[in-house]
Computed example of a mutant assay.
Amino acid sequence: MTEKEKMLAGKLYKAFGEELLGERQHAKEILFEFNALRPSEIDQRNALIKPLLGRTGAKFFIEPPFRCDYGYNISIGENFYSNYNFTVLDCNTVTIGDNVLIGPNVSIFAAGHPAHYELRVEEYEYAYPVTIGNNVWIGGGAIINPGVTIGDNTIIGSGSAVTKDIPANVIAVGNPCRVIREITEDDKGQYDHK
């Protein structure tokens, strides 16, 4: 099994072999150009980023700067928006549904490191898939950790550290992130979510 196959299978792997390092360097070159384009050059940005990503909807908008490890493990649905400084460590699949809003300075980490220092010193890491449902809003500064699933229609509050799955139709906040309430029909009558 190659290191890439181990990575995608959620097993311990080493990221600095020729294949994986080369693929990360390829992504960095594309992202360097993407992030350096003028604000008005939206079509050029999309033409650069679309082939790097695994899948995109027809309508998406990624504000620069944007960073990722590989790109090809990221799938974004229709009508996607991410604000400034979106970072995705896509060492495993990161699947994002339709109508998702990502606030500024949000990080999604599919990658992690072993708890025992001897494995870390030997440069082992692991990666688990991250899944974000449809109609999700992730507030600025949130961090989503490896293996997390966020259900449809959910709001993740600003600054949250999402370490476990969050169900659909809720507002969840905090470090660690926890559900504070369900989203109900009453929410249609107000613009905030207090």
Score class of each variant (00 low, 15 high):
1 M>N: 13
2 T>I: 07
4 K>D: 04
5 E>Y: 08
8 L>Q: 10
8 L>E: 02
10 G>L: 03
11 K>G: 08
11 K>E: 14
11 K>C: 11
12 L>T: 10
15 A>Q: 05
15 A>W: 01
15 A>K: 06
15 A>P: 05
18 E>Y: 12
19 E>K: 13
20 L>Q: 09
21 L>V: 14
22 G>A: 12
22 G>P: 07
24 R>M: 14
28 K>R: 15
28 K>L: 13
29 E>I: 11
30 I>T: 10
31 L>N: 03
32 F>E: 14
32 F>H: 15
32 F>T: 14
33 E>P: 01
33 E>A: 13
37 L>C: 07
38 R>P: 10
39 P>W: 02
39 P>Q: 06
40 S>Y: 11
43 D>S: 14
44 Q>W: 00
45 R>K: 15
46 N>W: 00
46 N>P: 03
47 A>D: 11
49 I>V: 11
49 I>D: 00
52 L>N: 04
53 L>E: 07
57 G>Y: 00
60 F>E: 01
61 F>Y: 15
65 P>L: 08
66 F>G: 03
67 R>T: 15
69 D>A: 14
71 G>A: 07
72 Y>T: 09
72 Y>G: 07
73 N>L: 12
74 I>E: 01
76 I>A: 02
78 E>V: 08
80 F>Y: 13
82 S>N: 11
84 Y>H: 11
85 N>A: 02
88 V>S: 03
90 D>E: 06
91 C>I: 12
92 N>V: 05
93 T>W: 12
99 N>R: 15
99 N>G: 10
100 V>H: 03
100 V>K: 09
101 L>M: 12
101 L>A: 12
102 I>Y: 00
102 I>T: 00
103 G>A: 11
104 P>W: 02
113 H>S: 06
114 P>D: 01
114 P>Y: 01
114 P>S: 01
114 P>M: 02
115 A>R: 13
115 A>G: 12
115 A>C: 12
116 H>V: 14
117 Y>N: 11
117 Y>P: 13
118 E>Q: 13
118 E>L: 11
120 R>T: 08
121 V>T: 14
122 E>C: 07
123 E>K: 15
123 E>H: 15
125 E>Y: 05
130 V>C: 06
131 T>G: 02
131 T>V: 14
134 N>T: 14
135 N>H: 07
135 N>D: 12
135 N>V: 01
136 V>W: 00
138 I>P: 00
139 G>R: 07
142 A>E: 00
143 I>W: 04
145 N>H: 14
149 T>W: 04
149 T>R: 13
151 G>T: 10
157 G>P: 04
158 S>W: 07
159 G>N: 01
159 G>D: 01
159 G>W: 00
160 S>V: 10
160 S>Q: 12
161 A>R: 07
162 V>L: 04
163 T>Q: 09
163 T>M: 10
165 D>Q: 10
168 A>R: 09
169 N>C: 03
172 A>M: 04
172 A>W: 01
174 G>M: 07
174 G>V: 04
175 N>W: 10
176 P>F: 08
177 C>P: 05
177 C>Q: 03
180 I>P: 04
180 I>F: 04
182 E>W: 06
182 E>I: 07
184 T>E: 02
184 T>H: 05
186 D>Y: 10
186 D>R: 14
186 D>E: 15
187 D>Y: 08
189 G>C: 06
189 G>W: 06
192 D>V: 11
193 H>Y: 15
